[in-house]
Amino acid sequence: MMENELNLPEFNIPEELDGKVAITNLDRLYNFGRRSSLWPMMFGLACCAIEMIAAQAGRYDMARFGMEVMRPSPRQADVMIVAGTVTKKMVPAIVRLYNQMAEPKYVVAMGACASGGGPFKEGYNVVAGIDKFLPVDVYIPGCPPTPQALVKGMIRLQEKIDQQSISKVRWYKKGADSVEIAIPFLGPDLIDPRRIQDIKEAANELATVNTAEEGAA
């Protein structure tokens, strides 16, 4: 498999050198190194975490794809698999962990709960999908997705990495290396610092509507 991906398709390698020589360009080499050694962060929140651990265990063995170990520390991880329901109490910790990860970093939303709130979407302590706070690269639906579905999702992430180019990635261009996300805080309900103005306007509107109703009644 290795030689097929690394080799540029327009060049034919003769049979006897197949597997020993590859003609490639810098982009492909760079992406090949990164996609074959993605270390996931051990970030299981709920039931999907069990399928993630089962995908790491004997039968589905994600180590074959290079996801050798699961590191609990964000400094040593490349991809954050958000597996399980994201609750409001936990979101400040998640955003802080994402900020501490070193570039290049990716986020995979595993399961229905992390993609869009899942069956618990209407709860008062549930955030309807982690993409409200973090930029998600791959969504894997299912409740829980079987380990094979998770492995397929990781293969799709690898394909996405293959499309990136070393001259266009954010961390090598001029400007900030990575984008830090403002950490939400827990007030009377969860407050996202990027949306403070919207909350103020909507709350003011509600106040005027209420006083109008009370005045009419």
């Binding site: 969860l190 709350a203 509600l206």
Partner: peptide, 12 residues
Amino acid sequence: PYGDNVRFDAGF
């Protein structure tokens, strides 16, 4: 009204 799963009192 807030575009998300949050609720605040009026005038917050």
